[in-house]
Design a protein around this nucleic acid. Sequence first.
RNA 1: GGACAGGUGGCCGAGUGGUUAAAGGCAGCAGACUGUAAAUCUGCCCGCGCAAGCGUACGCUAGUUCGAAUCUAGCCCUGUCCA
Length: 409
Amino acid sequence: MTQYKSDLLRLLDERGYIHQLTDAEGLDTLASEQVVPGYIGFDATAPSLHVGSLVQIMMLRRLQQAGHKPVVLMGGGTTRIGDPTGRDESRKMLTDETIAANIASIRTVFAKLLTFGDGPTDAIMVNNNDWLGKLGYIELLQEVGTHFTVNRMLTFDSVKLRLDREQPMTFLEFNYMILQGYDFRHLNKHNAVRLQMGGSDQWGNIVNGIELTRRMDQREVFGLTTPLLTTADGKKMGKTAAGAVWLNEDALPAWDFWQYWRNADDRDVGKFLRLFTDLPLDEIARLEALQGSEINAAKVVLANEVTRLVRGEEAAKAAEATAATTFAGGGLGADLPTLEVAESEIGIIDALVGLGFAASRGEAKRLVAGGGARVDGEAVSDEGYRIQLADKEIRVSSGKKKHGVLRPA
RNA sequence: GGACAGGUGGCCGAGUGGUUAAAGGCAGCAGACUGUAAAUCUGCCCGCGCAAGCGUACGCUAGUUCGAAUCUAGCCCUGUCCA
């Protein structure tokens, strides 16, 4: 690997954030000489970002750690269009109120990981609706449209994918890359932003912004992308059967968030520690080197650290404690899902559904029939089984990992 | 506007009148093995019901038929080519 002279690129490089750079030398020089404001764009399609966006958020954190200025761009305007990148289907339209509410909710996570303020290296959050919303159509076509050729736009992966798969792409979405390019140019002009970062799928969009800025203002700006993050078994980060691993507490309980990291694939532990925690590299190297079942200790550290950063110290401690009593001790942890039971007894099927371990009664029955249901550690094979509460808490499990508590009301 | 092709379960994809709640694959859940890992093997995988069974489902709506995902008509949507 190249020997970088700037703290920024050294930091990003050694922790595994760099996939592609538009001009490594130029950026390296710039970052070693001055504070570089850099931005990453985020969608506002949901009230919470998920783990898939955490690499980007952490990269902004690294930017700040290296003495530069993170700019969080919320795509309030572009969300109204829908990024076609990597998608077969057009997005549904969101109302302005929904988008505004989403942005407010997403902001809470950034507040935990970045230091916001007015200082030179304090983070700021901007919303591209502020400038894109004011842009007139003719004005846009005239100013920006002349710098894009359709010939070139058609060669972009985001467009080609749709065409190859014979999926529709609306004109609306086709314009996304233009607006995103315009964002970079705008941020450069008004906030002195010099760098855009993003996932590797954003390379085309980033390059567009760089070229647009050069053509319109003759200013040089830089782009950097992260590797596409997949888990070792080839899945996208942040997706589980139960749905996305959301960063916001109200979208996913801290316990489940902690469990996501605790259950990481062995092969991913080192990579995740580097990307998602602030632990020093030599410490990570030590943890990563653990063999066999000892690697579980590293996974606990990973889960603790990430949960602490994203959800706070308390949440991390509570989750770790719950894991210790639940898995090691066979007891009950405070974080486990709980079902209040008013009666003195409850059927196993109702208990499983009530705890959210089965989506329907039929599913719960199949679980019991398959031998996956346990009450206080004992397998229950009779779907008519009644659990007697008798004033104490009962532990109900689905499989080996999902545990819940029945509590007399 | 015209011609042609197409719209099937979370996804991909078979299925051209009954034996189809719909092959197969992926994803998922559970069991075994383990380390709350991976890989592998096994079972499950629309809803309600103990069950027989009932309900719902193959773009939408009407129809033909004892019977339709399968046939007919109209409509909606998509792609390709033509205007």
